[in-house]
């Protein structure tokens, strides 16, 4: 635990604070040493831990799958290759059953989303004190290792998916077609165009929000519970921690799966003509 005998509130706050590098109005570009400083930095700041861990997980994904892909032979597959192929086929089937257009980008996109989010979520089962404590000894104040408990990370990915939705809507339907779809569904009459537009724009904008916030909400809530459990006396922690961690094996996979499926479904809708 950081500091000397922090109160539970301080402990929880500390564990939920990202390592922030930003342009502080007084200190200039520096690491934030408190939540207030981080807040004062405003938008021009970056969470080093979120970025670092998410890029690390992404790189791990790329390396693992690249390695398996390069070593892939038509012969009997090894363990790593088997695992990679299982995930690969799972995603391929998922895309084939959900996405009805022809777009070679969708399946790799889904694979990246699924494995990347799965890996980032999986960081959660590492006991909550390990990395903050380790980095505190190295002189780093904050270290929140699960990137998906940071809304910036989940919303960042959701915005990426949103951009693709807009791009493919415009590409497949054309600007006119997309505008027409927004104006004339669900009610196909001139009278209700403003109403339709309002409805459709909201539903369009809600897509990335629901994607990003669902993942963030689930992960963040789980993380808070882990931190709360960690406040118990050391001999009682495992009693709650173990069932919660086992439960989270399900949550971690499920949330990665939901994010992936919804992205594919949204992109599929973007490809469809009405």
């Amino acid at each position: 635990m950081a500091g000397n005998n922090p109160t539970p509130t301080e402990y929880i706050r500390h564990h939920l604070q990202n390592l922030t590098l930003g342009n502080h109005p007084e200190n200039g570009w520096s690491l934030a040493h408190s939540a207030e400083e981080a807040r004062e930095m405003g938008f021009w700041a970056i969470h080093l831990d979120t970025m670092g861990w998410s890029i690390a997980m992404g790189t791990l994904f790329i390396c693992l799958f690249r390695k398996a892909g390069k070593a892939a032979t038509t012969g009997v597959p090894g363990t790593l290759q088997n695992m990679v192929e299982m995930v690969f086929e799972f995603i391929e089937n998922l895309t084939r059953s959900t996405f009805h257009g022809k777009n070679p980008i969708i399946a790799p996109l889904a694979l990246t989303l699924f494995v990347w989010i799965l890996l980032m979520n999986s960081l959660k089962v590492i006991p909550v004190d390990y990395f903050p404590e380790l980095f505190a000894r190295l002189g780093v104040d904050y270290m929140k290792i699960v990137p998906t408990t940071d809304p910036n990370a989940t919303m960042g990915m959701a915005i990426g998916v949103f951009c693709l939705i807009i791009y493919y809507s415009l590409k497949v339907k054309g600007v006119g077609g997309f505008a027409k779809e927004l104006s004339f569904t669900p009610f196909n009459t001139w009278l209700l165009v403003p109403f339709n537009l309002l409805l459709e724009l909201i539903s369009l904008l809600v897509k990335p929000l629901s994607l990003g916030l669902r993942l963030f909400g689930n992960m963040f809530a789980g993380e808070v519970i882990f931190i709360l459990i960690a406040l118990l006396p050391f001999w009682a922690i495992w009693l709650l921690d173990v069932p919660w961690a086992i439960f989270h094996i399900l949550v971690v996979t499920l949330q990665a799966f939901i994010f992936t499926v919804l992205s594919v479904v949204y992109l599929s809708a973007a490809h469809e003509h009405h």
Partner: peptide, 12 residues
């Protein structure tokens, strides 16, 4: 806080 991490993550 919502900050540049959002953009960074999108780029990543």
């Amino acid at each position: 806080n919502i900050n540049m991490t959002l953009i960074g993550q999108s780029i990543a």
